[in-house]
């Protein structure tokens, strides 16, 4: 793989994950609907996961799995630690989203609206 193409891939991977974090934060800070705020938080999650896995990449690397034919390729394997951490982070992200959505359901029952500016004690 030549140098300029690799530079382009690097820029697009980190750029995409930073963009995801920014989009999610924008949604969480600006949008009025509670559902959209929860969606924004999970988009931030996705961006952080992408950045984590990208940091473990090694140039020309393979997946950290010793499948037949790859038994002696330990030096070429990408970093397995960020991948294991992201596996944990995805599950925790799911748990956070589930609890947040159940709170949204309760708030909707109580106030009959999802707009955060109509729920008087939650304005910023």
């Amino acid at each position: 793989m030549d140098e300029s193409l690799f530079k382009y891939i690097e820029f697009s991977i980190y750029g995409a994950s930073i963009l995801l974090i920014l989009i999610g934060l924008y949604g969480a800070l600006v949008k009025k609907s509670l559902i959209k705020i929860v969606i924004g938080l999970s988009i931030v999650d996705a961006g952080v996961h992408l950045i984590f896995v990208a940091m473990g990449y090694i140039r020309g690397g393979t997946a950290p799995i010793f499948s037949p034919g790859f038994e002696n390729d330990a030096s070429r394997m990408v970093d397995p630690i960020p991948q294991a951490l992201v596996l944990t982070a995805i599950v925790i992200g799911f748990a956070v989203t589930a609890v947040a959505l159940s709170l949204v359901i309760r708030l909707y029952k109580h106030h009959d609206t999802l707009r955060i500016d109509e729920i008087k004690n939650l304005k910023w």
């Binding site: 820029f11 980190y14 950045i51 940091m55 990449y57 090694i58 140039r59 970093d79 630690i81």
Partner: peptide, 16 residues
Amino acid sequence: LGVIFLGLNFGNEHFT
């Protein structure tokens, strides 16, 4: 974030 992550040497960093 851009300064931090584009300053990293993608594909050649060995953090761990």
